[in-house]
Nucleic acid binder design. Structure first.
Lengths: 158, 158
DNA sequence: AGTTGTTTGACTATTTTTGACTAATAGTAA
DNA sequence: TTACTATTAGTCAAAAATAGTCAAACAACT
């Protein structure tokens, strides 16, 4: 079942760079429970596999799957993410950001933004907790630089 | 429905700087209850998204939506810093970042980085504390953007 | 038997829609 | 002025319409 739904969605994504579905409709179409759709998405349309997923609940709710393009900088960023690990102090975090700037992976402004977020004054004061939070934040930031969404029109109210 | 009414109003606002409606008329036009209009306005035309709303009850009553005008980037950043204030929740913070992106003050990558830092999972879980930390971080980030041009990489001397 | 991946459904969370009730303003009559 | 009425808009909470989570049951392989 999972494979069938996956194939269906990928077929659509082969022609379009994004699909928008109503969870209950797809579940009905394939005669399965709605949460099966979540399973398919969680196992087959991860960011590692090059997909971004957005959704909204409530009236007019939807699930949108977007195919993204993985960038050249991915290897470097993955390496950095590994280096960061589960925990990192402010000084090491600053080094990581500087390194990325030196290697032309990020712009000066991006570096500044990241450095602001690495600053210890932002955190709780508990060193161990802070180092974990900082690592989390920095790694998530880097992960977000690994891919790029297809051209989306801005200032478009549709 | 909400999306449709939002799109309608934005379409008008695309051509004019402000729009004035009679609540009951719009409700009739879209065949919905009048309070739906309030919902649209409260969720889609907030100050964080760059709109001001004025209204008057009674005979000749109206609702007026005004697109906030700012002069330049510096002005916009300062305005946003003011709007953020001492405390801001995740949703409003997202609106601010989105607005800056839409108005070409920040790049998509910068927006992504900022959004990561606005995510509530990063914080302590204490709403009041988190909103203060978030405001601090976001305002500091914006303040830093006032003095650096975007898209400058290290080896880029342009 | 143990491990891994899938299916299911009860429960939760979020967003929108609806309508009853409230508040404000303008007009008019006293 | 004051009081009353008509005409707007605002608020709030319940109901409806979605999607998400999680763990138990099931299945398919070692």
């Amino acid at each position: 079942m999972t494979d069938i739904i996956e194939a269906y969605l990928k077929k659509v994504l082969h022609q379009q760079e994004q699909v928008e579905i109503r969870r209950s409709e797809i579940a009905q179409l394939f005669d399965c429970v709605p949460s099966q759709i979540n399973y398919v998405i969680n196992t087959r349309f991860t960011i590692q596999k090059g997909y971004l997923v957005e959704s909204k609940r409530g009236g007019g709710g939807y699930i949108r799957i977007i195919k993204v393009q993985v960038l050249d900088e991915m290897d470097m960023l993955n390496t950095m993410i590994e280096i960061i690990g589960e925990s990192i102090n402010e000084k090491d975090a600053r080094s990581v950001v500087h390194k990325l700037y030196e290697d032309d992976i990020i712009t000066k402004r991006e570096a500044k933004l990241m450095l602001v977020a690495m600053d210890k004054s932002l955190y709780t004061g508990e060193r161990l907790i802070d180092n974990r939070l900082r690592s989390n934040l920095l790694r998530t930031m880097l992960a977000n630089l690994k891919y790029e969404e297809p051209n989306k029109r801005k200032a478009d109210n549709s």
